[in-house]
């Protein structure tokens, strides 16, 4: 590109040309990703919003505009309402247990010297495993008459529990399995965070009079882990929100709808009942929830964290 093509005089035409060249390169580099972003994210979102105000059913010939009827139906739909309640209960358990459990594990493992890598591997194992395959194992383990868990719990004085088929317990069981799979991931993230805390900070804190391990943790480790905590919190929220595999394989939303979750109901409506318009409306609401939660968390955590 010739320098003379710069439209207006600049004190350093070469510099301006370079700027333009860099801008062009930047646009070119970003273009493929931007195109994908439009094709895979933005365009579908627009279509989704449009679908959500129709009564479209997959394969149907005629489509009718129904305004906000789908949204209205959703909030009086008992299945959707319990799916929301179940999903929030699930998140309310998995989120704190996942974040603080991961942090506690990381702190314990971090302090180990010789056995550290062993524990790292063991706790990370469930993360890499295929949840569908492992859910089949869990179904086995939790079989009320054939699996080892029920007799074990009975021996511990819990009585004869059927963890998957009792409507009062099924959701908690799925949450525990979710936690089982998630803990190692969060632990590894926190371990990475811990190893980045400079040693001398602890010495400085010791000089300041921080005595015990707890004091050290509260005054140095925890604040330094801010960005990690934020990341872990957001990823844990989203993956807890997305609970699906275990529902499909283990309970299919039952018993008595005790494990109906948002994504499972969404899947049923969209790809099993083929109520496309209604499912689209549900998806829009799901997205609103996710955005709201992320914003909220980002706000809450950012107040205490200065992102590096």
């Amino acid at each position: 590109m010739a320098v003379s093509s710069v439209p207006f005089a600049s004190p350093a035409p070469q510099l301006a040309a370079r700027e333009r060249r860099l801008a062009l390169a930047g646009a070119a580099f970003a273009a493929p990703a931007a195109l994908l972003l439009v094709a895979i994210l933005l365009a579908p979102l627009i279509v989704l919003v449009l679908l959500s105000v129709t009564d479209y059913r997959l394969g149907a010939v005629a489509v009718r505009f129904v305004g906000l009827a789908n949204y209205a139906e959703m909030f009086s739909d008992p299945v959707f309402r319990r799916a929301i309640r179940n999903t929030f209960l699930y998140v309310a358990f998995v989120l704190p247990a996942g974040v603080f459990g991961g942090l506690a594990l990381a702190a314990l493992v971090h302090a180990r010297k010789r056995t550290r890598s062993l524990y790292e591997v063991i706790y990370f194992l469930p993360v890499t495993s295929t949840l569908v395959a492992m859910a089949t194992v869990w179904q086995f383990l939790l079989h009320p008459s054939l699996g080892p868990v029920t007799p074990l719990l009975a021996a511990l004085g819990f009585g004869r529990l059927d963890l998957l088929n009792d409507p009062d317990l099924a959701l908690a069981t799925l949450a525990l399995i979710g936690l089982w799979q998630l803990l190692g991931f969060n632990m590894v993230l926190f371990l990475a965070g811990l190893s980045a805390v400079p040693r001398d900070l602890y010495e400085a804190a010791a000089l300041d009079g921080a005595a015990g391990a707890v004091d050290r943790f509260l005054r140095v480790t925890w604040p330094m882990l801010g960005p990690t905590t934020m990341f872990v919190t957001i990823t844990t929220t989203i993956s807890a929100f997305k609970v699906f595999d275990t529902v499909v394989v283990l309970t299919r939303g039952g018993p008595l709808g005790a494990t109906d979750t948002l994504l499972y109901v969404l899947y049923l409506e969209g790809f099993h009942y083929f109520r496309t318009g209604y499912a689209a409306a549900m998806t829009v609401v799901l997205l609103a929830f996710l955005c709201l939660l992320s914003l909220l968390q980002a706000r809450l955590i950012e107040r205490r964290v200065h992102y590096a």
Partner: peptide, 11 residues
């Protein structure tokens, strides 16, 4: 007892 279909076959 009300258990899963697979669990029934197994039992």
């Amino acid at each position: 007892e009300l258990i899963g279909a697979d669990q029934n076959r197994q039992q």
